[in-house]
Design a binder for these strands. Structure first.
Lengths: 229, 229
DNA sequence: GCAAAAGTGTTTTCATTACACCCATGT
DNA sequence: ACATGGGTGTAATGAAAACACTTTTGC
């Protein structure tokens, strides 16, 4: 394929929607831009893809620079390529989402931005560029993915109670779930490992602590897993 | 965002998986390349995205040049961005699939290629570049999408029998379906319009002809449609 | 002892599956 | 009359949904 004159006039970036979960709320990591365009506004973390770097690695790099996290689930969602989506030139961007446990990370602004912060997804009303639309596309994909993949693995601490897991699903799906039916289904999947530890220092009956069991999950996957709740 | 020196060293393309259905077989449109690299090999039709052209429009342009078809469903699938996927330089590509009725189009090689042809998906064993992998990614997406969207609309002629529709689903899903259950489910969705026409000149009891009813479908969609079969 | 969340089964409803014979046409 | 695909209903099974009370702890 002979490349014509125009071949290299388009720039190429990645943008990350980094999901976290905190008690009752689904959050994402945003940066406050320090340069024009959109200086001072909140935006998704992203960067130009380097010519010698695999696309997916660019997304990992952005994530790493911002959170120090490297070993997480990263999911490609959609590529946004309207001519006018970036006011300074033609930039096509690939959106990825990742899932991390907020407690595990120590966020840092790096060179990106004035500030970095976790924001509740439901409270976000606008973002720089077309990032609000990108966020929604990623949220929809997360809501679909959650039905086929065990997202709790990534968003919760190692040990958790069934109620915490239920709250996570409720936050992601924006729906109330029945406690008994939820427990029945999640336990029948046979992907949790029951520690025999209990919560302590809680002003109510202490809950059992569970952990995901990756081996059991891989086993279950062979027979087809379904997380519809 | 100040663009650095390397910003524009990456080229950007689209590749189309154009699905068609012919009696019993799911097919895709392939071109035979006339230039290096991979001259003489079969490949997916694609092209470089022009700097002044929306991403989606590039995919439509490729489709139009090859088939003359403009008004079809086009679905973005995945973006492939390995550094070494193209031997002549860095090219990131976005894969789209589209669904067309083979009988409607008159394929033409355009400037693309030496030849263009419909090939049975199941018979394809290799393609140029990473196109074989791209094809599989698109096929998987089609198999998922088919459960939520009425793909028959696009792949079949305007009037069709229920058996033809069933064969289409069987070809896409690579599965045998029960005739009675299939009919029960598809009719209960209430998205078909029963013409009272019958087949003619067939050496068996003539089948009723149906057509998709877009209005009924839009109506049904509000209450949630499910095409799982 | 009271507030707060944990934990636990049964019944009803609905969707999915499995399954076999008669019908209308062309040759 | 025979070959070919068209067309039809019912029973059994399994999954999903609805629903309320007792238990354990901290204060």
């Amino acid at each position: 394929m002979p490349f014509g004159d125009n071949t290299f006039k388009t720039a190429f970036s990645v943008d990350n929607i980094i999901f976290g979960f905190d008690k009752d709320h689904l959050k994402i990591l945003l940066i406050k831009r320090k340069e024009e365009p959109f200086a001072g506004q909140w935006a998704l973390p992203g960067d130009i893809v380097r010519p010698d770097e695999d696309l997916r690695d660019s997304a990992f790099r952005v994530l790493d620079q911002l959170t120090g996290v490297t070993d997480v689930h990263l999911e490609q969602v959609f590529t946004f390529g309207k001519v006018d989506r970036h006011p300074k030139g033609r930039v096509i961007t690939v959106a990825y989402y990742s899932l991390i446990n907020i407690a595990d990370v120590d966020i840092r602004a790096a060179s990106f931005a004035e500030k970095v912060a976790w924001k509740e997804v439901r409270s976000i009303e606008s973002l720089a560029f077309d990032h609000f639309k990108i966020m929604h596309t990623c949220l929809s994909k997360l809501q679909r993915d959650v039905k086929y993949k065990p997202i709790g693995f990534e968003l919760l601490p190692k040990y958790f109670t069934l109620t915490e897991l239920q709250k996570l699903y409720e936050a992601v799906l924006e729906a109330d779930l029945d406690k008994r039916n939820f427990r029945k289904k999640i336990l029948k999947m046979n992907i949790l490992h029951t520690t025999h530890e209990l919560q302590s220092n809680v002003a109510h009956r202490p809950a059992k602590l569970f952990a995901f069991d990756k081996e059991k999950y891989e086993e279950a996957k062979k027979n087809g897993v379904n997380f519809e709740l």
